[in-house]
């Protein structure tokens, strides 16, 4: 009795979470298979039929799982989409980093430069950047270029803004000590500002990963032939709901894996830092 209670208390989080998820999945499966319609038929009569939903409308966990198995291991059609999306995503994110970090560091260090670009940064930050998509399509067409550009546009702002904040919050005492010992700007940058900016930059990278995912999907549903986003959009217009769910889950998995990688890097890079004494 007491061991049972202890087990529950020790694993309360996992237990409650699993129960809720399982219940939701069973409820969903039942909607498609008509379990609830059958069960409630004696009570509600004909109106219980409404509890059985069309397959194309809702799909079901088993249908999604079998579609995923088919797409990954039988036909392998999804790998091409993944590769295509990953190409645009990688290029876009790399460009956003290459542009965003120097821009943000410069804006943090040079006051006048920051005054000059602040209006643009805050205006762009307040805009839903995807609104530029039709414009980008006019400029570069609907190919790889448009997708890379929209990802850059979405991901560059968090990176630049965090890099700027990182420089501004550098401990001024450290800078003061270094410059009284005659360290030049470059030296200051390399030995003080850059190391103290790393946590901010990695946090920015996590934000940019999420924003970039939005870019992939939006760039591809708005006119692209291949890629996960295009696949989702095409499956949606053919009412292949199970394939849509597979696409969504693939994107979730990709996002979670990337964020986990960044967190690992964060832990490794931060290992030298002495623990903060409070």
């Amino acid at each position: 009795m007491s061991t049972k209670e202890n087990f529950y208390l020790r694993h309360e989080r996992a237990t409650l979470g699993t129960i809720m998820v399982l219940m939701t999945l069973i409820f969903w499966e039942g909607l498609e298979r008509g379990w609830w319609a059958d069960a409630l038929h004696p009570v509600l009569g004909e109106s219980a039929e409404r509890l059985q939903l069309e397959r194309i409308f809702i799909s079901s966990p088993t249908l999604v799982a079998s579609a995923a198995f088919r797409m990954f291991f039988v036909t392998g059609e999804i790998w091409r989409d993944i590769a295509w999306s990953a190409l645009g995503y990688g290029l876009g994110l790399a460009l956003a980093i290459v542009i965003g970090i120097p821009l943000g560091l410069a804006a943090g260090w040079y006051r006048r430069f920051s005054y000059a670009i602040d209006p643009f940064l805050s205006a762009l930050n307040a805009t839903p950047q995807v609104a530029f998509l039709p414009l980008i399509v006019v400029w570069v067409g609907t190919g790889l270029g448009a997708r890379v550009l929209i990802i850059v546009l979405l991901a560059v702002l968090p990176i630049a803004i965090n890099a700027r904040a990182a420089v501004r919050t550098t401990d001024p005492r450290l800078i003061k000590v270094a410059s009284s010992f005659g360290a030049g700007d470059f030296r200051l940058f390399r030995t003080i500002i850059l190391p103290s900016a790393v946590p901010f930059l990695l946090a920015a990278l996590r934000l940019a990963i999420g924003r970039g995912m939005i870019g992939v999907v939006v760039g591809e549903i708005y006119g692209s032939a291949a890629g996960i986003g295009a696949m989702i959009s095409q499956a949606g217009s053919r009412f292949q709901t199970d394939k849509v769910f597979v696409g969504v889950l693939t994107i979730v998995a990709a996002g979670l894996i990337l964020i986990e990688i960044v967190q690992r890097i964060e832990r490794r890079v931060e290992a030298w830092r002495p623990p903060v004494q409070v």
Binding site: R13, G17, F57, I214, V217, G229, S233, G236, V248, V252
Partner: peptide, 24 residues
């Protein structure tokens, strides 16, 4: 404990991905 699996999952999805489903 009961709701965090759902909130965390939704948080990990770019919600615009769900558009094709929402339109259906």
């Amino acid at each position: 404990y009961m709701l965090s699996p759902f909130v965390d999952t939704l948080n990990a999805v770019p919600r615009v991905t769900l558009l094709p489903l929402i339109v259906i």
